[in-house]
Nucleic acid binder design. Structure first.
Length: 405
DNA sequence: TCTGGGGTCCTAGGACCC
DNA sequence: TCTGGGGTCCTAGGACCC
């Protein structure tokens, strides 16, 4: 006996809102919106009550306030979400080790191995939902199918707090009436181009030759969309995929401008990025800088180095060059970011240059102090002096900062 | 209404090498 | 004198997802 639908997609319902409701029961049953509360904030998660007023993820908070003035607006508490996420994944892994995280609140499970313990895939799905409810207190929806992408579409149809199994063989029929926008990988832009071909539903795609789609959408996307519309999806559940990049960025409440302010913010970002690299024991061979101007145009500059780097000092040096190359000048900037790519294991043997500096030792020491006394226990004098620029922190340093340069 | 932060993957052109 | 084909790597931008 083998399940004909061995892939489960588990998706938590209004995750951030439900986590808040666990500790604040007065939020149950009323519209709740978790969102950036600043001038330039957007919605991270809206409760189903708020969604009825048209509020949804990604929407500017200002607009959400107008649509649903009675909602409770809460700033995201990332630590709470992250520990709730850990509890969710612990429950999922108690069923099978074959868990592929998609995001903090979503995962694919290969439940094929559970066929001897459960009578059907649906029973597995309902058992997972009940276990999540019991051990985390949170509602989840589950989609079951023969392939990942159908399972994903099924969980969406099942929401909220539901389960849907799409029987093997019935996939095309299930997909046919759904709008193309519902396809995983078809966003606003692709949707518009498909509409130009007269394609509105997923069923419509099957009437278009694959060659036409490839010409219109590009080879990879055209082929992909055509395959998905025919319910062909061979992707397996991948349990151990490695991260490819790391980045830190910030949108400012007020645009910043001028060399001094930009460089100080760049230094702050380099510091955070190096800290995260160190904690994951990785080094980076490419560094990129991202700048978004007041008119929302965005430019990136990147540089690939001969050897990987990892300290805040080295990252800052490269980032400064890239900022120069971006040619910002005096233009007002609304977002500044730094990214690290081409990641390598920091333990990998590396060539020692003649100008090898003690920066690594310094960063390591800083990290040790921080893990013991908190993130703000040590920092650069330059960042302390300009702490008012930081829009995410209102706390003062409690320890005297060391001057790191 | 005015657009977050963290990621992934694809495309297209150019450099460079054989 | 004019000009190959293929492969890999890098860069910049864009679409998409949660």
């Amino acid at each position: 006996v083998v399940f004909a639908e061995p892939i489960a997609h588990v998706d938590m319902d209004a995750f951030f809102v439900e986590v808040e409701r666990l500790r604040r029961p007065e939020l149950i049953g009323v519209p709740v919106v978790v969102a950036g509360l600043g001038k330039r904030g957007v919605v991270s998660c809206a409760s189903y009550e708020a969604r009825r007023s048209g509020v949804d993820s990604g929407m500017p908070t200002g607009r959400a306030r107008r649509l649903c003035p009675d909602a409770r607006f809460l700033a995201p508490d990332h630590e709470a979400f992250s520990s709730a996420s850990d509890r969710v994944f612990a429950v999922l892994r108690s069923f099978t080790p074959k868990v592929e995280p998609v995001s903090v609140d979503e995962a694919f499970l290969d439940i094929g191995g559970l066929r001897l313990r459960y009578p059907s895939a649906s029973v597995v799905g309902e058992t997972i939902r009940a276990a999540l409810r019991e051990h985390t207190g949170l509602p989840a929806s589950v989609g079951l199918a023969a392939s990942k992408f159908i399972a994903k579409m099924a969980s969406r149809e099942a929401k909220p707090d539901g389960l849907l199994l799409v029987p093997a063989g019935a996939e095309v029929e299930f997909l046919r009436p759904l709008p193309v926008r519902a396809l995983w990988g078809v966003g606003e832009s692709t949707c518009a181009r498909l509409e130009e071909l007269g394609v509105k539903s997923i069923g419509d795609i099957t009437a278009v030759p694959q060659a036409t789609l490839k010409r219109r959408l590009g080879v990879a996307l055209g082929a992909h969309v055509w395959e998905l519309a025919h319910a062909r999806d061979e992707r397996r559940v991948e349990t151990d995929s490695e991260r490819r990049s790391l980045s830190v960025e910030n949108t400012y409440e007020q645009d910043i401008s001028g060399k001094e302010a930009l460089e100080t913010e760049l230094l702050r970002h380099a510091d955070r990025l190096a800290s995260r690299l160190r904690r994951s024991a990785e080094s980076a061979r490419t560094v990129s800088v991202k700048v978004r101007y007041a008119d929302f145009t965005t430019v990136t500059r990147s540089e690939t180095l001969a050897a990987p780097i990892e300290t805040s000092h080295e990252i800052f040096e490269v980032a400064l060059r890239l900022l120069e190359r971006a040619g910002v000048g005096d233009r007002p900037v609304r977002l500044l970011g730094i990214g690290a790519g081409a990641l390598e294991d920091a333990a990998a043997p590396r060539q020692l240059g003649l100008d090898q500096t003690p920066w690594e030792d310094l960063d390591a020491a800083v990290e040790r102090v921080r893990s013991r006394y908190g993130r703000k226990a040590v920092g650069r004098a330059r960042l302390l002096a300009s702490a008012k620029l930081q829009d995410e922190s209102s706390q003062e340093m409690t320890e005297a900062p060391e001057d790191l340069g």
